[in-house]
């Protein structure tokens, strides 16, 4: 079976999301968990962009061979790309907040091992 670009992109997106979930659940170090969140984000973004791709088409920007007349014949779907732009920005905000919380947690207990934080454990 010959894989096309969009199949490879979808597959790698799913793979990255699985790796991210594995890291979020399995790692003990809070920083590694945060990195896993960003890996998960990246996988999701790749998946969404890949779903808006059409073979042989180009970015939806009028320039060079892409003219106003043939835009809808040669350009890909612009909506997933706009959504992913939003998702990247929100992902940045979430990551920054998580890192600052991690900084504060480290200030309190001088460790980033999640097993040391048992305050909410039952």
């Amino acid at each position: 079976m010959k894989l096309s670009v969009e199949h490879i992109a979808i597959l790698s997106g799913i793979l990255l999301m699985a790796i991210g979930l594995w890291g979020i659940l399995g790692r003990k170090n809070i920083l590694k968990m945060i990195i896993s969140f960003t890996v998960f984000d990246t996988g999701l973004n790749i998946l969404i962009v890949a779903l808006g791709y059409l073979p042989g088409r180009t970015a939806p920007i009028v320039d060079g061979p892409v003219t106003v007349e043939n835009l809808s014949q040669v350009a890909v779907d612009p909506v997933p790309q706009a959504l992913v732009l939003t998702a990247i920005v929100i992902g940045f905000g979430v990551t920054a907040l998580m890192l600052v919380y991690a900084l504060k947690m480290h200030e309190k207990k001088k460790t980033l091992d999640i097993n040391e934080y048992t305050d909410l454990k039952w």
Partner: peptide
């Protein structure tokens, strides 16, 4: 993780390369 990946794998296995844009994208373009 395996269950999660399997659930997402249906996206891959059901994926058919589209020939034309969907109506929203067509309208925007």
């Amino acid at each position: 993780v395996a269950v999660f990946a399997l659930a997402l794998f249906t996206i891959f296995s059901e994926y058919k390369t589209p020939e034309t844009l969907n109506r929203t994208a067509q309208y925007y373009n």
